[in-house]
């Protein structure tokens, strides 16, 4: 019985265990270096490091539960950050900018979600196309501006630097997304489609509709993440968001998310993975690991998690 339970929850144990191990390890080792990850400064740095990845990842759980992934996440964050600065400077308020971003994000989400099913192609293809389009849009915007960086002036963004606000917004988003994911048909159908699309379809699930809705959830979380991304430095650049889609993927896998979706998908994976990733970011340099080597250490840990959680028979990523 115990062995069966362990077998069923091995990825959860690995994810929770990994985070716990990181906390214990860095609590002890940073003390030896005369530092502490529990100091106010380090906790603040941890929240600043984790917030954008966590906000994105929580929304992305919906997409990954479908067995899909969205590689335009980084470019979307870049575009929304830029729009927030440009419109914020024009209007002196972030509200119109947020509305514009939401409209763009939802439009992109609907196309991303629907195109795969309607055009009978992998959903990731449309996100690749959007990634390229948004990259071009970014180049045009910054070429016209004549600068690689733009700053928001006249709008107070200090609230986005507050660890308490970060924690509050992350908790609220997690609860909202968690509710929709676990207790409504949006989440249940998404997981069902990820587990077995044909079976879900045979049960009467509208595949297009319930593939689009997860992308709309993601769109909303990306706009929230963009607010914190831009708000922390009150600036955006032509490279804002580069590689963020990989951060999301790594965070979710570290958190034990099955990459091909299904019923074992959990919102908590995003939180665990994001904090584990951020703890490594903050903790490794403190204990004296040169910056260049921290990537290698993170890669080894990432590999270990994949090794633990991979499917035994096929050897593919977590399921």
């Amino acid at each position: 019985m115990e062995r069966k339970w362990i077998k069923e929850h091995v990825s959860d144990l690995a994810a929770f265990g990994g985070l716990l191990l990181c906390i214990i390890f860095f609590t002890i080792t940073t003390q030896l270096k005369g530092e502490s990850i529990w100091s106010a400064a380090k906790l603040s740095a941890l929240m600043a490091d984790v917030i954008v990845t966590a906000l994105m990842s929580v929304g992305a759980v919906f997409i990954y539960s479908l067995g899909n992934m969205d590689v335009s996440i980084g470019k979307q964050i870049g575009l929304y950050s830029t729009v927030l600065v440009l419109v914020g400077n024009k209007t002196g308020s972030l509200i119109p900018a947020v509305v514009i971003c939401l409209v763009i994000a939802v439009a992109i989400g609907v196309i991303n979600g629907a195109s795969g099913e309607i055009l009978h192609m992998y959903a990731v293809i449309s996100s690749v196309v959007f990634s390229m389009i948004l990259s071009g849009v970014s180049t045009i915007i910054y070429s016209n501006i004549g600068s690689r960086n733009i700053a928001l002036r006249g709008v107070d963004t200090s609230c986005f630097k507050s660890p308490v606000v970060m924690l509050g917004v992350l908790a609220a988003e997690t609860l909202i997304i968690g509710y929709f994911f676990n207790y409504t048909k949006f989440g249940k159908y998404a997981k069902a489609i990820g587990a077995n699309k044909t079976a879900a379809e045979q049960c009467g699930v509208n595949i297009v509709k319930y593939k689009v809705i997860p992308y709309v959830f993601l769109a909303c979380t990306l706009v929230v993440a963009s607010l914190f991304q831009m708000g922390y430095t009150a600036a955006a650049s032509d490279s804002t968001g580069v590689g963020f889609e990989m951060n999301v993927m790594v965070a979710l896998i570290l958190g034990g998310m099955p990459l091909n979706g299904g019923m074992k998908s959990k919102v908590l994976c995003a939180i665990i993975g994001s904090f584990t990733f951020a703890l490594l970011d903050i903790g490794l340099p403190i204990i004296g690991i040169p910056t260049r080597l921290t990537f290698m250490v993170k890669a080894v840990i990432f590999l270990a998690v994949v090794l633990i959680t991979c499917r035994k028979k096929t050897g593919i990523l977590p399921r």
Binding site: A236, T240, P285, T291
Partner: peptide, 24 residues
């Protein structure tokens, strides 16, 4: 210690690079 800046000089990327290498 060398800290590797964001390849594209992104403000947040540079801040994160410094933050992650910052000790007391």
């Amino acid at each position: 210690e060398i800290v590797y800046a964001d390849t594209f000089n992104d403000p947040d990327g540079n801040l994160t690079a410094v933050r992650n290498s910052y000790t007391s």
